[in-house]
Design a protein around this nucleic acid. Structure first.
Lengths: 343, 343
DNA sequence: GTCCTCGGGTGAAACGTTCTACCTATAGCA
DNA sequence: TGCTATAGGTAGAACGTTTCACCCGAGGAC
């Protein structure tokens, strides 16, 4: 295993008495080479444990077979289940096609040094999947009309032609609103994530649906859950909502974690779920099933979304498609945290 | 942004009327070049948004400035908080030195095609951090005495010289045992992760400590928590433990998730924590603080471990060190899930 | 016998850097 | 004057592939 010089294509060629081209063609499964020669080459390759130099290959072929996944700059972001589920989907799909996945975090260095474009210019990666989702990430508009392969995951920019794939947040909001309204709730508090366009879309559609059902401005309040959509943020937002309207009988959280924070607030104030207050989340993370009571939520198939996003990026590489603007369906999951409104 | 040919060092050289070497030296901050020329070149670089081709650079310099992080083949592994915390630490440290992080999963393809070594041979990465931790990953012993830069993270092989860095699981076990014994517990159930050497070390040291305190074989039982150390596994193991010894007053879980599963089992059987049964975990994941009651645990600084592991790998690159066998300290975190044994 | 085709293979340019060895002009010094 | 040192810069080999254009020989068609 320890050797001074690594084996190169030249060594293989010499040993087999063929040209470099022949070895290269064999390695790339080109049918020009006869069975006999092919086997001789392959045997030699195996014998030496030869592996093509990735840089030489990338230089000559102008591709890297690597994709970059960009996540936002949050504390310990890779420990976040939301991003983790998506990344898992991306990885698995990429792996199927022998693509590698490179990590990137959209921190200030990444933005200021324009790493987001340099990584493509330098050919380090063939394309990017951008999960980092903030309404502030406006620099991405630079990709409009660019030749680079690029896809936003569960995130979009209004009035932009950037490729994206995500779940249908507006339908999500409608299903959630209909569920709570159907249970008779007339005083609802919304905990919104306001730093993404999808979060805003969810909030606005949810409120619009409630208004359409006859709830007035005071009957459906919203509060910001904070920029990291955390349990703590949900806890705090719930406090504020109850302070403004003590008659609230349902809390709609923009994601499950904030929903769990809301449950915690409600429990610590000796209210019963769902008898006194119903709570809903969004995403259906595994934890949602294990809360007491189980959390009613709208399932967003994050893993599948990751897979699909990666699939579309690969399709862009292949030229099978040239744009992508796609939303995936969502599904209401009723558990025990929602029930008829207290009368 | 859209151009036919990307700018190369040649374009810059031509525009500035200097040689390729000069441009290259400027880009690598070599002091040979005068301030004047340097500025001229840098201006041109900036103007064209020039970025060196990563493959050309890698080919010439024989490095890639990329490290690979290998995690085990679990379902949706990147959504796992344990690995997520470590990966976050690794990423942040790598980022400080402008290294990139590539993901790998130790699935059957990875093992059978010997990707673990090919990725190094092909120069795709300069080194590897192996978080994938199973006693079955014996193929890694192939790295003993190899020239490749390689480090096991929170994982070790007995009787092996492989580099590693992790926390001190034996000390962890001693602190946990002393805490429970000190509270008067004399019937203890251990939920162990048995598919890692660290998990086995924890179990064995914990039991040894209890025996040393006078507990006999029946008084300290252990049960396997399953290969993914999950909440469900902890739940099921707890059931078995109580079936064997209904007198148990304390459960020691090999990680927090299994501990949370244990708590769930205990709650659903109308026992009180800690009045009837004390429960302890290991790791101190953020969730441990939010359980009811809060989970007593041994804090393993996973993020810091990731950072440290990456730091050591970089030190191996630089040649500052040539081996690494290091354990990090752990700390008992007492919350409300443990209390005096019921008499 | 000549021309075509085609299977199987080769030669060498191209990809875009890094880096060593070398060059030149000028200054300093005895 | 001749010698050395040095600052500033250059030429070109090397890195290890891919791939296009080309070659050769054999078989078939006419």
């Amino acid at each position: 295993m320890a050797q001074g010089q690594r084996t190169t294509i030249k060594d293989i060629a010499k040993e087999c008495g063929v040209s470099l081209s022949t070895v290269s063609l064999v390695l790339n499964n080109n049918s020009r080479i006869s069975e006999k020669t092919r086997n001789r080459v392959l045997a030699s390759v195996k014998k030496h444990g030869y592996q093509p130099n990735i840089h030489a290959r990338g230089l000559a072929s102008q591709t890297s077979e690597v994709i970059s996944v960009v996540v936002p700059h949050l504390n310990h972001v890779f420990a976040d289940i939301y991003f983790g589920e998506i990344v898992s989907g991306i990885y698995d799909r990429a792996c199927d096609d022998n693509y590698k996945v490179l990590l990137d975090v959209a921190n200030s260095k990444f933005v200021e040094s324009q790493e987001y474009i340099n990584i493509l210019k330098s050919r380090r990666v063939d394309g990017m999947l951008f999960i980092a989702s903030s309404i502030e990430d406006d620099y991405l508009r630079a990709f409009e009309g660019s030749p680079y392969k690029f896809l936003l995951v569960n995130h979009f920019f209004p009035n932009s032609s950037l490729n994206f794939l995500g779940v249908d947040y507006r339908d999500s909001a409608r299903q959630a609103a209909d569920h709570l309204l159907g249970l008779g709730h007339r005083n609802i508090g919304v905990i919104a994530g306001t730093n993404t366009h999808t979060g805003l879309a969810f909030r606005d559609e949810f409120i619009a649906r409630c208004r359409a059902a006859g709830l007035d401005e005071k009957a459906v309040l919203w509060e910001d859950g904070g920029r990291d959509w955390s349990q703590e943020g949900g806890f705090e937002a719930t406090r504020k909502l109850f302070a403004t309207n003590p008659a609230i009988t349902a809390i709609m959280a923009g994601n499950d974690r904030m929903g769990i924070g809301a449950m915690r607030y409600i429990h610590t104030h000796n209210l019963k779920i769902p008898e006194d207050v119903s709570v809903m989340g969004v995403d259906d993370i595994p934890q949602a099933k294990f809360t007491t009571p189980g959390l009613t939520t709208i399932r967003h198939e994050l893993y599948q979304m990751g897979r699909a996003a990666c699939e579309r990026l690969l399709a862009l590489f292949r030229g099978d498609i040239s744009t992508c603007h796609e939303v995936l369906p969502v599904k209401l999951i009723v558990r025990e945290s929602t029930g008829p409104a207290k009368t």
